[in-house]
Amino acid sequence: MRPPATRFGMFLDDYATILNPRRYVEAMTAAFVGAGGEIERAGVSALTREGDGWRLQGAGSRRFEHVVVAAGAWSRTLLDPLGIRVPLESQRGYHVQFEGGDGVISRTVVLAGKKVFATPMELGLRFGGTVEIGGLARPPDARRSDVLQRIAVESFPQLAGLSAQTWMGHRPCMPNSVPVISEAQGQPGLWLAIGHDHLGLTDSLPTALRISDGICGARS
C-alpha cells in the first residue's frame, strides 16, 4: 500500500532484512559452540595489563593473551582508565513495533522525508528512527516514541488501534561514522571493534574476520 501523500519512491531489489535478529545471533552462537568454541557470561569492570597479556576484572578474574573490546556504546568505560581516548558517543534511537501489522508492507520502506524506517519483522511491523545525543544514563524520552508512533499511523492508517511496543537503544557512533577495527596503538594484544554507528549487525561478520585475521597474524 502506498503511504498517503507519497508521490514517488525508489525500489532497491538487493536490499536485505533480518526478520529476527535474536534468532540470527543465536544461530551464530550455536555454530560457534558447534565448532568447539566456548562461551562464558560474566561482567567485566576493568582491564589491566599483565605481562604479555591482559587480565579481565569483574565477576571473576581471567587472563588472556588477546582481548577484544566490543562493548558497543559502553566501550569507553573499559578504555578510558587505560588512557585510550576515543570520541565514541551514543546516538540514541527509538523504536515502535506494532503487533498484528502483518501484510501492511512486504519489505522495508524508508519514509525519507521523516527519516523513519518501517520493516516487517517476525514479531510485528517495526518503525525505527530519530537520533538523540543523550548519553548512557539519561532515561528514554517518551515524546520521541510518541512522535514515531504518530508518523507510523499517519503513513499506514491500518495500524491505528493495534498494540505497540516501544523502546530506545544505543548506537555507538564515531564523529566520522567510521568504526575502529584494529589493535589499540601501543597496547599489544588489545583489540578494538567499536563505533559501528547504525550498522552493527551489518558489519559484524566483516569486523570479526578482520579482528581474527589480525590476531592470527600477531601469533604467527
Rank of each mutant, 00 (worst) to 15 (best):
C216T: 10
Q187R: 14
G93P: 15
A5P: 00
G134T: 01
V67L: 10
L209Y: 09
D141F: 00
R22W: 06
G135I: 08
A71M: 07
L190M: 09
Q91W: 14
Q165W: 11
P139S: 04
F64C: 12
E38Q: 10
S182W: 02
R7M: 00
A42W: 10
V86Y: 04
D203N: 15
A35W: 01
Q158A: 15
A184H: 07
P21I: 08
H66S: 12
V96D: 00
L159H: 05
L148C: 03
G200S: 14
G37D: 01
V104A: 02
L56K: 11
R219E: 08
P3L: 04
Y24A: 12
V86N: 01
W191Y: 11
G128V: 03
G37R: 09
D14L: 11
P140I: 01
A112R: 15
E50C: 08
Q91G: 02
S204I: 11
A164E: 02
G83P: 08
M121S: 04
R85H: 05
S45F: 06
A31P: 04
F32H: 12
D52K: 14
L148P: 08
S212K: 11
M174C: 03
I105E: 00
R41Y: 04
V68Y: 09
G124M: 01
T202G: 11
T48K: 14
L82G: 06
V96W: 02
A208Y: 05
S204N: 11
F8R: 13
K114M: 09
D13I: 09
R41L: 05
E65V: 13
W191D: 02
